[in-house]
């Protein structure tokens, strides 16, 4: 393999998009209103498209003949390295929007930096994806504010969503030898400012939404190393069903 660290970085990036795209696709036909059904499936499509570009490129870097389908649909559970946040179940519409918002607020500043990667293909994927992510963040931010600053019922429920999902947010900033190696070799630009940018976004939106960040410090991490929550196996069984039942099938 030409660059093991780059391969692992691309898997993390690609798996986040793939798994969140799969979760959003579960809303297809179940959205609370038609416009939101269409919005969530459109965002899902963007994410799955991004995952295809990223995982295809991961396959090129790995150089073992695996493409986005093989990497996306035929790995075992412990080989997926997405964030625990993105695999959490959809819950109600508020839970889905909160999961999306915490993620979008992170993805936008991440892509804004990856655009300057010295790796041309990674920079091209980031540039393409950033344009889409801006629309996603606007959509999820507006819903958090609308629900939080809405009725008593919607306020209580979106506050509960935040209380449930907050514990998965620290993993967004997980960093290890993969990132260090890529920063050293100049493939990754300096990513250190992402966290403060993310905090500024979430604080501003939560303030307008009149909801508060929970004070307990529980943190759940492990996804980046392949340790998943109990929900993940069920998600995979659905995601992988067709390729497992009909190996090598083409759509």
């Amino acid at each position: 393999m030409k660059n093991e660290a780059l391969f692992r970085f691309l898997l993390r990036l690609g798996d986040d998009s793939l798994i969140l795209g799969q979760r959003l696709a579960e809303w297809c036909g179940h959205g609370p209103i038609l416009e939101e059904d269409i919005a969530m499936t459109n965002i899902s499509l963007d994410l799955i498209g991004q995952a295809m570009s990223i995982l295809d490129y991961a396959g090129v870097v790995e150089d073992k003949g695996r493409d986005c389908d093989k990497l996306g649909l035929l790995r075992f559970e412990s080989e997926y390295v997405n964030l625990l946040l993105v695999e959490q179940p959809n819950g109600d519409f508020g839970d889905t929007m909160m999961r999306q918002f915490l993620f979008d607020a992170f993805r936008k500043p991440l892509y804004e930096r990856l655009v300057n990667s010295s790796d041309k293909q990674l920079a091209a994927i980031a540039d393409k994806s950033l344009k889409e992510t801006r629309y996603h963040l606007k959509h999820s931010s507006e819903w958090i504010i609308r629900l939080g600053d809405g009725t008593e019922e919607s306020h209580t429920r979106i506050q509960n969503s935040l209380d449930t999902l907050w514990r998965y947010s620290s993993e967004l900033f997980y960093s290890d030898e993969v990132d260090n190696e890529l920063t050293k070799t100049g493939i990754l630009p300096d990513l250190s400012g992402i966290r403060s940018e993310w905090e500024a976004t979430v604080n501003s939106v939560f303030q307008q939404a009149t909801i508060v960040i929970p004070t307990n410090n529980w943190k759940f991490e492990g996804g980046r190393l392949g340790r998943h929550s109990e929900h993940f196996g069920h998600l995979l069984s659905e995601l992988q069903y067709m390729q497992r039942a009909y190996p090598n099938m083409q759509w």
């Binding site: 416009e35 269409i38 919005a39 459109n42 499509l45 963007d46 959509h139």
Partner: peptide, 13 residues
């Protein structure tokens, strides 16, 4: 504008 997301990825309603 009815919705930022329309019948395909490239359209709004």
């Amino acid at each position: 504008m009815v919705s930022q997301f329309g019948s395909t990825a490239c359209k709004a309603l």
